[in-house]
Structures are given as structure tokens and as C-alpha cells.
């Protein structure tokens, strides 16, 4: 009996799509688990972010102070 190529092709499709999805679904679960574990046990320390924002605030305060001083000086003179 001659093999029906189309039927073969459909079988390939079923197996192929099934395997691709299986692989990616398992991968999605693994990614979720992995990021949970990483965040729980190895949280990323970000000291630079905190210090930079506070220094930025300090800078702004200094700028405001300088401007007010300048305005005051301008008005007085």
C-alpha cells in the first residue's frame, strides 16, 4: 500500500507542534520558578539607585537655595 504523504505530514504536524508547545510551556514554568528562587535567595542589591536619588534631591535643594539667594540679592540691590 502506498503511504499517504498528507497523512504523514499531519502526523508530523501534531507531533511537532505538540513538542514545541510542551517545551515552551515547561520552559515558562521553569522561568517562573527560577525567578522566584532568585528573588527569594539572591535579591539584587541596588545601593546605587538609592544614593543617586538622594544626592539628586540634595542637588535640587542646593539649586533652589542658590536661586532664592540670587533673587533676594537682586531685589535688595
Amino acid at each position: 500500500m502506498e503511504t499517504n504523504l498528507v497523512v504523514e505530514g499531519l502526523k508530523f504536524m501534531g507531533l511537532g507542534m505538540g513538542a514545541v508547545f510542551l517545551f515552551l510551556i515547561v520552559l515558562i514554568f521553569l522561568m517562573g520558578m527560577m525567578s522566584k528562587i532568585v528573588h527569594k535567595f539572591f535579591p539584587e542589591v541596588q545601593p546605587s539607585a538609592g544614593s543617586s536619588s538622594s544626592s539628586a534631591q540634595n542637588n535640587q535643594k542646593k539649586v533652589v537655595a542658590a536661586i532664592t539667594a540670587a533673587i533676594k540679592f537682586h531685589r535688595e540691590s
Partner: peptide
């Protein structure tokens, strides 16, 4: 955003759908 991986899987239908087309 791990679940977007499913989109990458679905697009592989292009491969297997065409396989059926070629043998047809």
C-alpha cells in the same frame, strides 16, 4: 513576561502547516 513564549511556539505552525502543504 514568560507567557509570551507561547506566541513564539504558535508561530512555528508556519513550519508544520507548510510541511502539510508541501506534501499535499
Amino acid at each position: 513576561n514568560p507567557k509570551t513564549a507561547l506566541l513564539g511556539g504558535a508561530a512555528q505552525f508556519g513550519i508544520f502547516g507548510t510541511l502539510v502543504g508541501a506534501v499535499a
